[in-house]
Design a protein around this nucleic acid. Sequence first.
DNA 1: CTGGACATGTAATGTGTTACATGATTTG
DNA 2: CAAATCATGTAACACATTACATGTCCAG
Lengths: 185, 185
Amino acid sequence: MRILKYAILGLVDKGNLSGYDITNCFQEEIGHFWSATHSQIYPELKKLTQEGFIQFETLIQGVKLEKKMYSITTLGRRELHQWLVHSMIIPQTLKDAFMLKAYFFSAMDLDEAEQQFSDQLKMRSEKLAYLNERMNVLQNNDDFNLSPKSQHFGNYLVLTRAIEREQGYTSWLKNSLALMEQGKE
Amino acid sequence: MRILKYAILGLVDKGNLSGYDITNCFQEEIGHFWSATHSQIYPELKKLTQEGFIQFETLIQGVKLEKKMYSITTLGRRELHQWLVHSMIIPQTLKDAFMLKAYFFSAMDLDEAEQQFSDQLKMRSEKLAYLNERMNVLQNNDDFNLSPKSQHFGNYLVLTRAIEREQGYTSWLKNSLALMEQGKE
DNA sequence: CTGGACATGTAATGTGTTACATGATTTG
DNA sequence: CAAATCATGTAACACATTACATGTCCAG
């Protein structure tokens, strides 16, 4: 399905970027939902250039450090758009190794299971706090508003989803821990 | 990290299974969170046998159809347990291609984006209805109860999480669609 | 002048999917 | 007797991570 292809096309469509920039993008908001390292990105950029979806211009930083700034072509924008409006089936499996532990619950002692769940709850609560902080930063932008016309709307959608995802996970963990507590009596 | 290794150990620990049985397990509840096809499973079973974590007995079905029933060894059970009680860090990326579309929102027209979101909402609502049905079936088991001592508890945890996950996703989709509607005015 | 960030690449390995390949058993 | 299911395997390819490899630039 070559999702990375479309991830790169979408990022480059938003604004010209180098491979290094793209690598960094995956450390920000969108990185909660898709990422890749530079070892995957550079070959993909080469391939997309060969296919005519993107093109680059070499810039010199300082005296001789070369930097390839990529921009999307008309062909690339068409390719991206086609993917965006094409219906996407939901995958039957969304891998989550922790849920294997939950499924194998009876292979643990009750206190071991509780430890696992509370450990996970701690980490997810911290992540949730971090995400809420990021949301604060986003909403404190001078030009922030909830309109789909806002340049921040995509970012807002991604952040709300990330927050909702962690909130759901933490509340499920809490409910499960409560059931374990009750089960002790 | 060899998650499949532990998935297989956990399943075989619950009860002796053949490669074919394991393949089918991934079509059931746990398949919402982990899965693999037989082309991955058979080689892994071979490897785990060589490593001494599982062993098999060949059964004859009918006249000559051979079936390898696997069981976990003491070494395998120790290996599984060690993994279960080992703290598991949460992955920074949980891939979701639809969220790329959300992030690239501004590369679509508003009506195209709405179409994508409502399309996704329809599919996720259907999945949610299916999951609720499965929960009904589970709760109608004669010996069902919410105790962590119940043999169904692992299955219950997995189902509640799957339901929570889809519920969260659908409500985020609905909220996002509402914002798009408001943005039109 | 050094450590961290900037910048780009390839190689090796691990994981996962689709296709190829074969044959037995059961159910209608 | 034909179709679906049971049952096991390998090969080719696609995707992803970690390691290898090199060099520049800037701030303290």
